[in-house]
Simulated scan of single mutants.
Amino acid sequence: MSSSFDKFQKRRLISSYFSVVLSIFLVLFLLGTLGLFIINSQKLADDFKEKIAMTVFFKNEATDAELKTFGDELKKAPFAKSSLYVTKDEAAKQHTDIIGEDFLTFLGENPLQNSYDIHFRAAYVERDSIAKIEKQLRENENISDIVYDKQLVNLVNDNIKKVSMWILIISCFLTFIAVLLINSSLRLSIYSNRFIIKTMQMVGATKSFIRKPFVMRSVRLGILGATLAIIGLMIMLFYVETNFPELEILANKTLIGLVFAAVMGVGILITWISTHFATQRFLNLRTDDLY
């Protein structure tokens, strides 16, 4: 009979530990995923900004030397990440490939112009910055026109600000939920041992002595849950890197390491604090209140 009861208690204890580790793992995995998204969101936003191109068209009177000089100036310009010179013949070929017909046979001459496609550095993809750059470029008398998607620039910057704000709100909300979930799981685990706590207190054990094994056990569970969360995050990172290499999600290993360290730190800190206060609560209860 005693053996059956001991087995039942052991199974219940294992089940309690499992639920605590599982809740810690799930919560920390979500927080870690959010952290990785945050550190990569700026890079993703910058990559998208740098794909927006400005096309500068030149008058037919512009000489090859003048076009080359403009290209050399772009290489030195702080706002230009890259530039591509497209001759009028190359532009005609591109248009022919797109429409599927050689439009030059109908027109008899090439109406297109030599141009430069300029990709900006992310910091300069702002409404005011691009407007200043455009004004500066138009001072060149050889330039006939400058074309870029102004609405897209405004839309990108406005949406990035909105997304950043919502990421901050969601981060705070998830952190709060994480603390509540882990705290609730640990409180239930301590609740099942409330009679043991009170018995130890009645035989003269100090509060710190009673608290220590419960806190240490919870911290070990927190470390286990955080370790599983880090393993899960590593698997997710390698999956994303394998299937979407253009994102270069593993490029900044230092920040990724900081996220992993933060996941481990949060797992230890929350379990330590939650267990400390949960144990303290039962230590302060009267024996009659335990029931």
Rank of each mutant, 00 (worst) to 15 (best):
V219D: 05
D89E: 15
F244K: 15
L224D: 05
L181S: 05
F106R: 09
D64G: 10
G222L: 04
E141L: 06
S164N: 12
Q136D: 09
V219C: 08
I169A: 12
P245W: 10
L104M: 09
F8G: 14
I24Q: 03
R11G: 04
K10Y: 05
K198S: 13
G100C: 00
D46G: 12
V179T: 08
I190P: 09
A123K: 13
A261H: 11
E248H: 14
T279D: 03
I133N: 04
F18N: 11
T206L: 09
F260P: 00
T206Q: 11
K132H: 06
L283K: 09
Y124G: 04
Q136G: 07
P245G: 10
E73V: 15
S189R: 01
V240A: 11
V266P: 12
I223P: 11
T96Y: 01
E246D: 14
E109Q: 04
I130Y: 05
F120M: 07
L26V: 15
F57S: 07
I24N: 09
N252P: 00
L67W: 07
S185C: 08
I270F: 05
S83P: 03
N140C: 05
A251S: 13
E246R: 14
I230E: 08
L186M: 08
Y116I: 06
L269K: 04
Y239N: 15
R211D: 06
K212P: 02
V219W: 02
I99C: 06
N157Q: 12
T271G: 13
A261E: 12
L221Q: 07
E61C: 06
S208F: 06
R194E: 03
S171L: 08
N140A: 07
T199I: 04
D158K: 06
A226K: 01
C172F: 09
D289P: 01
K59V: 06
M1H: 08
N140M: 04
M236P: 00
K161I: 11
R127M: 02
V156N: 04
R194I: 03
V27F: 04
I98K: 15
V179L: 06
G265Q: 01
K51M: 01
S171K: 11
K207V: 11
H95A: 14
A53I: 02
L247K: 07
S144E: 02
S208V: 13
L180C: 02
L258C: 11
N154I: 08
T279S: 09
F277N: 10
I98H: 09
E246L: 15
L269N: 05
N284Q: 12
V266F: 10
L26H: 10
L152G: 08
V203S: 05
F70D: 10
L107G: 01
S16I: 00
V21I: 14
A262P: 13
R281G: 04
A278W: 00
F48P: 00
N154D: 15
L250W: 03
M165A: 15
N252G: 11
